[in-house]
Design a protein around this nucleic acid. Sequence first.
DNA 1: ATAATAGCTATAGATACTGGAGGAACAGAT
DNA 2: ATCTGTTCCTCCAGTATCTATAGCTATTAT
Lengths: 140, 140
Amino acid sequence: MLTIGELSRATGVKIPTIRYYEQMGLMAVAERSGGNQRRYESHDRERLSFIKHARDLGFTIEAIRELLELSAHPDRPCVDADEIAVRQLQAVRNKIAKLRLLEKELDRMTSRNHDDQVKHCYVLQSLANHDMCVSEHQRP
Amino acid sequence: MLTIGELSRATGVKIPTIRYYEQMGLMAVAERSGGNQRRYESHDRERLSFIKHARDLGFTIEAIRELLELSAHPDRPCVDADEIAVRQLQAVRNKIAKLRLLEKELDRMTSRNHDDQVKHCYVLQSLANHDMCVSEHQRP
DNA sequence: ATAATAGCTATAGATACTGGAGGAACAGAT
DNA sequence: ATCTGTTCCTCCAGTATCTATAGCTATTAT
């Protein structure tokens, strides 16, 4: 039996976050001690590790809920889980592509900045004038 | 004179977002028509374009506030604006590096997924077991 | 004059947590 | 048995950046 603090240390998930996951229905409602404190078993630790791992990979709570649903029904085809992961992979690749463009522009902005007055500041000029962009860019 | 809708179409910033920026003090409190509707001039459009551009580059509202402050005082040294941009560039490079690790792992997860039952699903196994990771990864 | 479009305010919701206040429980030392 | 220090509880508020809805009013075109 683990206390919430032990579970937190074991998984690297902060205590309020664990309670939040319980509230959101990602973690089962925990058993309680006589004094109303949460007590966990090792399968709770595994489930929470799964959740943390998926969050670290950028899966949303909703996607994780789907994945947990899937893993609870081991006879259903794996295609669904795969599809979620593929979607995630595409999102990650999109983000990388956009961030590369931003990197290019920021690099250009800063590396030219050898003047020392704001009125000649390349950073501010670049931001004021979209025409100077190397490329179309969007919210990252 | 532009209405809020025209300003929105001219800059690509949604109407509620423009009002939000006014509330946050990024945009000046707009003049009003007789019927209490906001009216804008071309300098408002330029300022909003600056804000949108900076947001697209990932600057926070706070950083943008600083940049707008700086550009209002053209005699101060440019170093501060440069520093904000450099900070932003570093953050972007960090994000890219982390996302590359995630990409690697997600790719590995999905490309091996040729089984068709959840109980053998590589995606779910990977998420359940951190030991299978190629690398340490963190929240993106 | 009427209808369609666009605007107003105020409030709530989305996302995924994080932190604090105020108090109760537990573990170990005396 | 009591004291002390740590950990836990609930509830509420706040973060950042919008987005959306409801209910109402203004403007524009015909």
